[in-house]
Nucleic acid binder design. Structure first.
Lengths: 176, 176
DNA sequence: GTCTATACCTAGATAGAC
DNA sequence: GTCTATCTAGGTATAGAC
């Protein structure tokens, strides 16, 4: 056991679990280390800082969002919204963690990237020259859709997806 | 000047300003006291704890939400959504503060009350017996509307209100 | 290469003098 | 009503033993 760097993976697992269950701010390095039966400073051998540890927990989500924004081409809004839903749904646990403590976005300098991903999605939905009214409609669509991910995380994915995407589409096309 | 308890009001002002500008978590009692030219323990004469101080900053919003939920009767969704928009818009600075650090909701035991207000609004919109699909539509509507308050807080209220309410209405009635 | 012991800082909070 | 002094708990980080 404990092939050399099992420990690093075990730290990530425990950190992820505690971050999810009791929030990022309310989880101390001491708790994590005690849970593992090692001392606090031992964590620093594997991670440069608490921030680096947190970053590693969030990375799967940011990687996927980055790839989505980079690879996506304009297309039918229903497909874009559905694919965005699927991506977010896959990472709904980490999303809930972030929503519960949005200050981690600024801590990790993720605010800009988040805005840029959202901007990309909105532009894919309504095009680059749309007026502000359409932009607000798109914000209701994307924002409302995202809220459903977190709010109905424990329901069957397909039910939530169908209803949420149709509502988002309606918001997008409001008054046209 | 400094009628005896000016100081309490001055503390609130400074705390509010710092909480808004740099976030609740990132604002210490030391910063607040230094800004006022008094010492940290002096704050404790006026407020029992940091939490009590934070609570007093948020209170105008919670009072208004409480009154809204208590007094409102079912009516046309466009009126309900418009009135809810107005109320939230009035308190958009405090709302941004909360959104930037949602963990303060659980710190102040406000999660339950928030859910209950939202529940009340949803029920006013779609009635008490509506199926889950309608409930999800309403969540997109209310969630998307709220997102716009925070995202477009610096634009003219009327422009945002018109576009956001019409998109929320469309989401609410999607597929019917 | 892996972890322990330890140092040091800042936070919120309290006691008691003035 | 405000101050000095101090406490405790937690945080990050380093030096060095094994």
């Amino acid at each position: 056991m404990a092939r050399p760097s099992d420990t690093k993976a075990r730290i990530q697992e425990v950190a992820r679990e505690l971050f999810l269950r009791q929030g990022v701010t309310n989880t101390s390095l001491r708790q994590i280390s005690e849970r593992l039966g090692i001392t606090k400073p031992a964590l620093y051998y594997h991670f440069d800082s608490r921030e680096a540890l947190l970053r590693s927990v969030i990375q799967p989500l940011t990687d996927d969002l980055e790839a989505f924004a980079a690879a996506r081409r304009p297309g039918p809004p229903e497909d874009l919204l559905a694919d965005y839903f699927d991506l977010a749904w896959q990472h709904r646990d980490v999303l809930m963690m972030i929503v519960a403590d949005l200050s981690i976005l600024s801590e990790l300098d993720l605010v800009g990237r988040m805005l840029s991903w959202r901007e990309t999605l909105v532009t894919l939905l309504i095009g680059p020259t749309a007026p502000q009214r359409a932009r607000i409609h798109a914000t209701v669509a994307v924002g409302g859709l995202s809220d459903c991910i977190v709010e109905y995380a424990q329901l069957p994915a397909e039910d939530v997806k169908k209803a949420a995407v149709e509502a988002a589409l309606a918001a997008l096309h409001a008054g046209s």
